[in-house]
Amino acid sequence: MYQIDVSTISGFLVSLWAIITGVLSFDADAYIAVLTQDGGGRMALAVLFVSTLSLSIGQSVVLFANRVGRRRFVLSLMLSATLLVIGVYIWATAVWLLAALVFDAYQSFRNVFIVVSLSYAPLVYGFLVLLPYLGNIIYMILRVWIFLVLLMAVQALFRFGWFDAILCSVLGWFVLELIVRIPMITAVEQWLWRLFSGKKALAETHDIVTEFVQSVRTSAQAWEDEDAE
């Protein structure tokens, strides 16, 4: 079945691919392998980072729009992936606490983190969000896919019924949404974006383009006025 090998880079990559394909096909053995074998925690983290990095590439249009340079672009992708990983960590913590406090179901935090992390495996296709027209549809499909995989995993891990699994996961997500909206957290996030992207703020594409058109207008008017003088 699934053998996790973290002793060599090639072994790690082969194991990583096998685990990702296993999770994507809803194979419970992939979860069991990561939960029970040595190196499982690192493997879950690797799955999560690869997935979030892929999505960050798919959503990189905002970095292009803000004219972030090549080096800072790579740094910003790394930051984006890391922030997503932190978000997953918070979600896992919320699910772990809710399961214990509300549903009276206990598991180690390591197991919950592994399960939630692996559920993000569908995001390995996150780079496809770049596709014109189809990108947004693909993103929605990936979100639904993640949620279904997570439900299955949470249900199996805590031996919940479907209703409890849905309630626990959704409440966990709700807690995550509340936390990321805390002003201090938002301020830290924006500070990190400024630090990594080198921009004062990451503006919306529409605003940047409007500003550009204004500069075209001003320059063109000046060019035309030269003639009048």
Binding site: V61, L63, F64, A65, R67, F127, L130, L131, P132, L134
Partner: peptide, 13 residues
């Protein structure tokens, strides 16, 4: 299809 937005994005950035 995957590379199609890159010309515009590369030009803009």
């Amino acid at each position: 299809a995957l590379l199609s937005p890159l010309e515009a994005l590369g030009w803009w950035s």
